[in-house]
């Protein structure tokens, strides 16, 4: 049986905020339930805008986005990891999780933090955590709402490679164990090669899909050599 559609995107036109011209024009895309889709493209192409529309944060466009059959703004909350961690600086790590998810008990929040390798930091204020730890709290927070849809907006930007690899592992584990539908936005093909089941590359203004590549290799088997091959394949697909 074919997997059901989790997110259906049909955007006829999305204008730039406060500027003339179209950001997106005639973009159609379906994301299957449990799939990890990577949207890759240069800065300013509209990837993050698209993610905000999917999250129901921006309804100012011509077209329709449905999430599990409901209009995006009416669907339940997705797990959303923003480019910056966006933690409430006056709350501890566990309290930050519970701030967006009141149904999450304290022990569940503690357990989520443990899953992210943050045991013992439950009451730590964001200001006392490193950038990498803050991002992991943001990930734990996204998981607390038990999302069927997880949106990741450039979660690896401006952090060192070692931390990127750690976060790749954490997100890869989430994809395998919890199996939410995931949409990852990145400008880096390597992030997509490491995590995605399918990679869509956007380019131009208005943005259009220039390549769509299915990554067949299981995530666990994507060793450094295989990753290089996948990145090369994605490069080739985009005509770079």
């Amino acid at each position: 049986m074919a997997p059901s559609i989790a997110v259906s995107i049909d955007i006829r036109a999305k204008r730039f905020e406060g500027a003339t011209g179209l950001l997106l024009d005639g973009l159609r895309l379906d994301v299957s339930e449990g799939e990890v889709l990577a949207l890759v493209g240069p800065s300013g192409v509209g990837k993050s805008s698209l993610l905000r529309m999917i999250a129901g944060l921006d309804a100012d466009f011509d077209g329709q986005i449905t999430v599990f059959g409901q209009p995006a703004s009416e669907a339940g909350p997705p797990g959303f990891v923003f480019q910056d961690p966006r933690l409430l600086p006056w709350l501890g790590a566990a309290a930050n999780i519970r701030a967006v998810s009141p149904a999450t008990t304290m022990s569940e929040a503690v357990s989520l933090l443990g899953e992210m390798g943050l045991s013992g930091f439950e009451t730590a204020l964001p200001g006392s955590l490193s950038g990498g730890m803050q991002r992991r709290v943001a990930l734990a927070r996204a998981l607390a709402v038990q999302p069927r849809l997880l949106l990741l907006d450039e979660p690896f930007v401006s952090i060192d490679r070692k931390l990127v690899r750690e976060l790749h592992d954490v997100i890869g584990r989430i994809a395998e164990q919890r199996r939410p539908t995931m949409i990852l936005v990145s400008h880096d093909l390597e992030d997509a090669a490491r995590l995605a089941d399918r990679v869509i590359q956007l380019q131009g203004r208005p943005a259009r899909i220039i390549a769509e590549t299915r990554v067949e290799t299981r995530r666990a088997d994507r060793n450094p050599a295989r990753l290089l091959e996948i990145v090369a394949q994605l490069d080739e697909g985009s005509g770079e």
């Binding site: 905000r52 999250a55 129901g56 944060l57 339940g76 909350p77 997705p78 959303f80 923003f82 910056d84 966006r86 409430l88 006056w90 709350l91 701030a99 967006v100 998810s101 009141p102 709402v145």
Partner: peptide, 24 residues
């Protein structure tokens, strides 16, 4: 505005948004 957007994305109810996001 980032925190406002965060609260919107997670559909945080109004009173909770006031108490945890706005007042502090």
């Amino acid at each position: 505005t980032g925190l406002t957007e965060l609260a919107q994305a997670y559909r945080v109810p109004f009173l909770r948004r006031m108490r945890l996001f706005l007042v502090p």
